[in-house]
């Protein structure tokens, strides 16, 4: 499944989408960036409510397929600009982390 397909099926809002054809191979959820950076896997759709600009660095470092900001958590324009600059797919959803993860899981038949 590509990031674009995931975005369409979960009805995600696009904040930045530089690489829509990137393959999504799994999911990860977490907000403590020091924790996430060592554990999220390459290709994961990462679900979080954290919107500090360091999420872009962590997504780069962990090579996640995209970031999905849950519960419409506010994202500052400079974070969106940084996502575009670093070519990080950044989406947002009104769903909470649990509901989003359930939806992601159902797409992977988990």
């Amino acid at each position: 499944m590509t990031v674009k397909e995931l975005r369409e099926r979960l009805d995600l809002q696009i904040l930045s989408e530089s690489d829509p054809d990137r393959a999504v191979t799994g999911g990860y959820a977490g907000d403590l960036l020091s924790w996430v950076m060592g554990r999220a896997q390459s290709g994961d759709a990462w679900v979080t409510i954290m919107t500090n600009r360091n999420i872009i660095a962590v997504a780069s470092l962990a090579d996640t397929a995209c970031i999905i900001v849950a519960e419409d958590s506010a994202v500052e324009p400079d974070v969106i600009a940084l996502a575009s600059e670093k070519e990080i797919n950044l989406y947002r959803s009104p769903l909470n982390i649990f509901d989003l993860c359930c939806r992601v899981g159902s797409l992977f038949d988990l």
Binding site: L32, S34, M37, M50, A57
Partner: peptide
């Protein structure tokens, strides 16, 4: 800050 953001951002 390091636990939560992974670093003390230079910015």
């Amino acid at each position: 800050m390091i636990a939560i953001l992974g670093s003390v951002p230079k910015d």
